[in-house]
Design a protein around this nucleic acid. Structure first.
Length: 413
RNA sequence: GCGGGUGUAGCUCAGUUGGUUAGAGCGCCAGUUUGUGGUACUGGAUGUCGUCGGUUCAAUUCCGAUCACUCGCCCCA
């Protein structure tokens, strides 16, 4: 490798891959618009506090994965590791509480100092949505349905599975946490080293441990949904029946938890088995306490984020859009070819030029570019105020008067 | 952060039990066809064998370190 390699965990999106990313983002946004979402663009960096105060101090994202630095004014700045905190900050600083409910879509790069793996980069891209200001479970249903709709529009419906759980409200979760800790403490000799640590810092995380021994212990552990109080249970029931009503297949997973501290009630993940260890493709939940905790007016919220790289890897071939026309000048100084190319571009065609070489090379290039037809400007034809138009799929060629160019080429659009 | 695997041409990979000119397929370039592509045939170019260091008469090959990728853990989308 040369020393001109990109920084570890980053890479260039060449046109091919870039097109796939764009397809994911644009499909997502066009579906989101149908649900009433508008796009918000927040800065890529924020004051470090924005993340450290909201994501929770038990999360690795905050404790060891942030790109944090002091800027020239001595402020502690962090490259955003996720999107929700920045949107919440914008909500507060922009006084958006006047406009509730608010539906926001975002996309863009995120940064985490992690060990790179397939589908896990240090600079990666997410799309996400946040629905702010709706207390009822209709919001949860609509937001999850939107996620499912986007995955369907991307052709991934059969490759993913929605897993759903409820973390309940603060009271329910505290009751459950106590019961879980009490239960797990009886098995300290059987738990893995990782899980013993989780038992101290973030006991719910023991539930989704991959360790065999942990799983045996967890199999008989108390179940979160048994500890929901009446209000939390009713909320969860509505979410379930609502998802059924809008046709989103659900698999309940009582061991599904969330990594970041601000979540409550609904937690969900669309997962796939096609990406190895990075199986989560779109995930989120409800975060009623977040905005109040950040110093804004108490405002409920729910949202999700999805990894664009992961979605892109699941996609089949993405068609590359309109096939161009190739304008091929033969002889002369090529000015006439530029004139023709410009006319066709003004008429809405994508036009490629055959820059150099003989006819064979130029046609070859046209072919590689996937051109639909070639417009050949030969001296003979030009003398008759005409060009040769070759259909590159059928091989048929005809002479077309210059005056009728746009009209006769319309069928290649 | 922890443990395993890999690194040879633009791409996918073979190979060298340490020895002089390092290979294939695909791609690329050229020709067969000087105004006609895709197919076919013929020919051609291309490598600091990831990097640095060690052992050796000799290292792409063995050893060490390092960087990157990759698989699992951790974490998470």
């Amino acid at each position: 490798m040369s020393s001109l390699q990109p920084v570890r965990g980053t890479h260039d999106l060449l046109p091919d891959e870039s097109r796939r990313h764009r397809h994911v983002e644009e499909t997502a946004f066009s579906v989101a618009r149908r649900y009433g979402f508008g796009e918000i663009v927040t800065p890529i960096f924020e004051f470090t506090d924005v993340f450290s105060r909201t994501l929770g101090d038990t999360s690795d994202v905050v404790t060891k994965e942030m790109y944090t630095f002091a800027d020239r004014g001595g402020e502690s700045i962090t490259l955003r590791p996720e999107g929700t905190a920045g949107v919440a900050r914008a909500f507060i600083s922009g006084g958006l509480s006047q406009n509730l409910p608010l539906k926001l879509f975002y996309r863009g790069p995120m940064f985490r100092y992690e060990r790179p793996q397939k589908g896990r980069l240090r600079q990666f891209h997410q799309i996400g949505v946040e629905l702010l200001g709706v207390e009822g479970p209709q919001a949860d249903i609509e937001v999850i349905a939107l996620g499912y709709h986007i995955l369907s529009a991307l052709g991934l419906k059969d490759k993913v599975q929605l897993e759903l759980n409820s973390l309940g409200d603060a009271e329910s979760r505290a009751a459950y946490r106590d019961a879980l800790v009490a239960y797990l403490s009886g098995f300290k000799d059987k738990l893995s080293k990782d899980s013993l640590e989780r038992l101290e810092r973030n006991p719910l995380r023991v539930l989704d441990s991959k360790d065999e021994g942990d799983r045996l212990v967890v199999a008989d552990a108390p179940v979160l949904t048994d500890y929901l109080n009446d209000a939390s249970r009713a909320f969860f029931d509505t979410v379930k029946t609502g998802l059924e009503a809008v046709g989103v297949p659900v698999k309940l997973n009582p061991r599904l938890v969330r990594g970041l501290d601000y979540y409550c009630h609904t937690a969900f993940e669309f997962t796939t088995t096609a990406l190895g260890a990075q199986g989560t493709v779109l995930a989120g939940g409800r975060y009623d306490g977040l905005i109040g905790q950040m110093g804004g007016p108490a405002t409920p919220g729910i949202g999700w984020a999805a990894g664009v790289e992961r979605l892109s890897m699941l996609l089949e071939e993405v068609a590359c859009g309109d096939r161009p026309l190739a304008v091929i000048p033969m002889g002369g100084d090529g000015v006439e070819a530029l004139r023709v190319a410009q006319r066709l571009r003004n008429a809405g065609f994508a036009v490629e030029m055959g820059y150099s070489g003989n006819m064979k090379k130029r046609l070859n290039r046209a072919n590689k570019l996937g051109a639909r037809a070639a417009v050949i400007l030969g001296d003979d034809e030009l003398a008759r105020q005409a060009v040769a138009v070759r259909d590159l799929d059928s091989g048929e060629q005809e002479e077309v008067p210059l005056a009728m160019l746009e009209e006769r080429l319309a069928r290649f659009r």
